[in-house]
Computed example of a mutant assay.
Amino acid sequence: MSTDQPHPSRADDGPPDDLSAFIGLLNELKTTGCNLLVVGDAPREVFTRASGRLLGDDDQLRYRLLAVTDATPRSIAERLPDPDAAPRSLTETTRILNHTGAPRSVTAATDPTTPPELAGIRETCVADPELRGLQSALAEAIDETENRADRLRPADLRVCLDSLGPLIDHYGPDVVRRCIDAVGGHVRDRDAMAHYVLANAYDSDPVQALAPGVDAIIELRTVDPDEYGHDAQQRWHVPRRDITTEWTPL
């Protein structure tokens, strides 16, 4: 499901107006800014695929800000648009914040392991090892992107944090929740869209601890392609509105 053209299906046991209510909610979130939590018991490749779609279609002008803690350079490259299809150079519209335990550049052209798609993209290694350093860097990058862009329309700015796992392991869910709340305020102020990756089951304690701080939760799972005709599915949860979609192809 692309957030540029959402086409969810309602749950089988839900009332007939669930679908229209959910589509209306997605359009509202795109207009006013939103924060999404992407979770599930699925391989990292599935999260990369979902993240790429949330970052926007290749042929649409989107400004992308990716903060990474454990995402590999290849997975970062795979979620960015095809440079030949993008309306502007990725070096103009994309920025990476590197918050790894031992910062190592993911865009260095001199590193033979760097995917060519990442060469030249602006990268900032967050020197402050505390979570407040990442929080401040994200807020500053959001502000700077808004100032540098010609004009940001709702949902033009897409923010990704991949992943929350190492942060929760080190700081605990309460501290991470406060970070998401702070960053999420900047996201909503710019009518932007942010998603945060957490490779945990939907009903796990870390996910449920963070759930009140986001607008919706996207749950991922893998399925048998011979049975379903595709290998991964998603469903959306919006606890505040008591909405859960049925599983749909990713």
Rank of each mutant, 00 (worst) to 15 (best):
T3C: 06
T3P: 12
D4F: 11
D4Q: 08
Q5K: 13
P6A: 00
H7Y: 10
A11E: 15
P15C: 10
D17P: 06
D18P: 04
D18R: 10
S20R: 12
A21V: 11
I23N: 08
E28S: 10
K30E: 15
T31G: 09
T32E: 06
G33P: 12
L36V: 14
L37H: 04
D41C: 09
R44M: 10
R49E: 06
G52W: 03
D58S: 08
D58Y: 04
D58E: 13
L65A: 06
P73N: 06
R79W: 06
L80G: 02
D82C: 01
A85N: 09
L90K: 04
L90P: 07
T93S: 07
T94W: 00
T100P: 06
G101M: 09
P103R: 11
S105C: 11
T107L: 08
T114I: 02
P116H: 14
V126Y: 14
A127G: 12
R132T: 15
G133N: 14
Q135W: 10
Q135V: 07
A137C: 12
I142A: 06
I142M: 03
T145F: 10
N147W: 09
N147G: 12
A149D: 04
D150M: 03
R151K: 13
R158Q: 00
R158E: 00
V159L: 13
V159S: 02
L161Y: 08
D162Y: 04
D162E: 10
D169Y: 00
V175F: 05
R178L: 13
C179M: 15
C179P: 07
I180H: 06
G184D: 11
V187Q: 07
R190G: 03
R190L: 02
A194S: 15
H195E: 04
A199Q: 11
V207K: 02
V207R: 05
A216H: 11
R221F: 05
D224N: 15
P225Q: 11
Y228M: 11
D231H: 08
Q233D: 14
R235L: 07
R235I: 07
R235V: 00
R235A: 03
W236L: 10
H237M: 00
H237Y: 13
D242T: 01
I243D: 00
I243H: 04
T245Y: 01
E246I: 06
W247A: 04
